[in-house]
Amino acid sequence: MNRSIFLVGPMGAGKSTIGRLLAAQLQLPFADTDKVLEERTGADIPWIFDVEGEAGFRRRESEVLEELCLGPHQVIGTGGGIVLLEENRRLLQKFGHVIYLQAGVEQLLERTSKNSNRPLLRVPNPRARIEEILQERAPLYREVADVICDTDDLTPKQASALVAERLMESLSQ
């Protein structure tokens, strides 16, 4: 593998979980942009959102993405909103193979319902917020994607195997 593999998609699509499994399968290191950002700042994502707002978080996220792009080839799980900035979309396409992990609203709601570390879902109606996020971001995920994989109703292991298979198909074309 001569380029990094980026996993993009909404929160709850499985970017971190599937990313770790895929990295192990491909014998590559794994990085998660949110975890790298938290390690670098010493603060968690909700705190950064509270103090710096979404704009401050997105700036920091872009810096982390740029650093990871210039580092060793690896599997990289990205934050759900990383595609919002055009500069990030260019970096993803320039430095790697981009896999869009998509999932339906029901799955995303179920997978995110027990996680309080999601500042964008701290709203009275998380379902409506997820629908709004998908409407805004799905075209951007498709724009950058080399491969699209639906993770609905798949275990992380099944999804990882599907991603690996589709990635290899894409690379052989």
Score class of each variant (00 low, 15 high):
Leu21Val: 02
Leu21Gln: 05
Leu21Asp: 04
Leu22Tyr: 09
Leu22Ala: 12
Ala23Leu: 10
Ala23Glu: 08
Ala23Val: 08
Gln25Tyr: 01
Gln25Cys: 10
Gln25Pro: 04
Leu26Lys: 14
Leu26Asp: 13
Gln27Val: 12
Leu28His: 02
Leu28Lys: 06
Pro29Leu: 10
Phe30Gly: 01
Ala31Thr: 03
Ala31Pro: 03
Asp32Glu: 05
Lys35Leu: 14
Glu39Gly: 15
Glu39Asp: 13
Arg40Ser: 11
Arg40Val: 06
Thr41His: 04
Thr41Met: 09
Ala43Leu: 09
Ala43Ser: 09
Ile45Gly: 03
Ile45Asp: 03
Ile45Tyr: 03
Ile45Met: 03
Ile45Arg: 05
Pro46Trp: 06
Trp47Ser: 15
Trp47Leu: 14
Asp50Tyr: 04
Val51Ala: 13
Glu52Pro: 02
Glu52Cys: 10
Glu54Val: 14
Ala55His: 05
Ala55Cys: 06
Gly56Trp: 08
Phe57Asn: 11
Arg58Glu: 05
Arg58Ile: 06
Glu61Asp: 10
Ser62Pro: 02
Glu63Val: 14
Glu63Thr: 12
Val64Trp: 01
Leu65Asp: 01
Leu68Ala: 00
Gly71Tyr: 00
Pro72Asn: 07
Pro72Lys: 12
His73Lys: 15
Ile76His: 00
Thr78Cys: 01
Gly80Arg: 05
Gly80Pro: 08
Gly80Ile: 07
Gly80Met: 09
Gly81Gln: 11
Ile82Gln: 02
Ile82Phe: 04
Val83Phe: 09
Val83Ser: 01
Leu84Asp: 03
Leu85Asp: 05
Leu85Ala: 04
Glu86His: 06
Glu86Gln: 07
Glu86Asp: 09
Arg89His: 11
Arg89Ile: 06
Arg90Ser: 08
Arg90Lys: 10
Arg90Ile: 05
Arg90Thr: 09
Arg90Gly: 06
Leu92Pro: 00
Lys94Glu: 14
Phe95Gly: 04
Gly96Met: 11
Val98Cys: 03
Ile99Cys: 12
Leu101Val: 02
Gln102Met: 08
Gln102Arg: 13
Gln102Gly: 10
Gln102Ala: 10
Ala103Arg: 07
Gly104Glu: 15
Val105Cys: 15
Glu106Cys: 15
Gln107Phe: 11
Gln107His: 13
Gln107Ala: 14
Leu109Thr: 12
Leu109Tyr: 11
Thr112Asp: 09
Thr112Cys: 09
Ser113Tyr: 03
Lys114Gln: 07
Asn115Phe: 03
Asn117Cys: 10
Arg118Val: 02
Arg118Trp: 00
Arg118Ala: 10
Arg118Leu: 08
Pro119Cys: 11
Leu120Lys: 06
Leu121Asp: 00
Val123Arg: 00
Pro124Phe: 04
Pro124Tyr: 04
Asn125Cys: 11
Asn125Ser: 11
Pro126Trp: 04
Pro126Arg: 12
Arg129His: 12
Ile130Ser: 09
Ile130Arg: 08
Leu134Ile: 08
Gln135Leu: 08
Glu136Ser: 13
Arg137Glu: 07
Pro139Tyr: 08
Tyr141Asp: 11
Arg142Thr: 06
Val144Asp: 08
Val144Trp: 10
Asp146Leu: 03
Val147Leu: 03
Ile148Arg: 07
Ile148Leu: 11
Cys149Thr: 04
Asp150Asn: 15
Asp150Met: 07
Asp152Pro: 14
Asp153Pro: 13
Asp153Met: 15
Leu154Gly: 12
Thr155Met: 07
